[in-house]
Design a binder for these strands. Sequence first.
DNA 1: GTTGATGCAAAATGTTTGCACATCC
DNA 2: GGATGTGCAAACATTTTGCATCAAC
Lengths: 150, 150
Amino acid sequence: MLGSSPYDRIGSPLEAGLHQEGRRLTPQRRKVLELFENIGSGMHLSAEDVHHQLLEANTRVSLATIYRTLRLLVEMGFLHELELSEGGHRFELSSRDHPDHHHLVCVRCGRTEEFESENVVEAGRKAAERNGFELIESTLNVRAVCPSCQ
Amino acid sequence: MLGSSPYDRIGSPLEAGLHQEGRRLTPQRRKVLELFENIGSGMHLSAEDVHHQLLEANTRVSLATIYRTLRLLVEMGFLHELELSEGGHRFELSSRDHPDHHHLVCVRCGRTEEFESENVVEAGRKAAERNGFELIESTLNVRAVCPSCQ
DNA sequence: GTTGATGCAAAATGTTTGCACATCC
DNA sequence: GGATGTGCAAACATTTTGCATCAAC
């Protein structure tokens, strides 16, 4: 049995989105999304991380399902996929308050800071426009060395 | 035997760089770097791509050596490593004319356009400074849909 | 009850490594 | 001649998939 959630009776955006596409709301999918919601929007988790964190909360979801769910949640727009690390992609909650944010990553220890910049968003918008592309999103990855690793 | 090259007698930056670190100039290393030089600086190749392209030019270099060589050439600054694709990293020639350039990628067909932006570079520099990080490089990835895929 | 989802184990990728042999300097 | 590099095959890590069973609707 998987625990209850605030969405048990109120109908969540997740549930609505799933049903709209003929998909189903399962405890596993709810748990994965809840994990990201509880952990906050600045966290970057790999599939393995999600698996471990759920185990620590006494929720066993198979790794295969986690991969399937992460892909699904990205498609549905609930999560963002990041490609800034060695060894595996990472995922974060997409947040309306933080639409196009960027990452400053330490190449030694992996420490990551987030920031926003209207100039960067604007540069991406212009580049897309100039080439006739339809913009989806832009992310700036700044590779650097953090103070404690210098 | 691997074919001859323009560097056979004149001494290349590659050779100089290698010897400086007690490393050796091998035909394999020369061939990999030459491939990037001949193909031009806007091309993004995966390790597999490099392997295939060399085979087509009748040069057999093992995949293991290609991975080792790509890592080496990145460390030495001859190549740049990109993280914008599904399924494996890609590499491109680093060019002095094109220092910190950015990518506009079509999420459907993978078509990639490059561009530059002083504002973006500046935003990365500021973010690093604000957090006490030592900047290495910054890359903006703009995900979008190209005209023919719209 | 039907269809879609899960779990398991196996397969598929992409990348790294140990070791014997070859080669650069 | 000695240290470094290569090729091969095996090991690894991450992600995907086939299939029987389970559960949401």
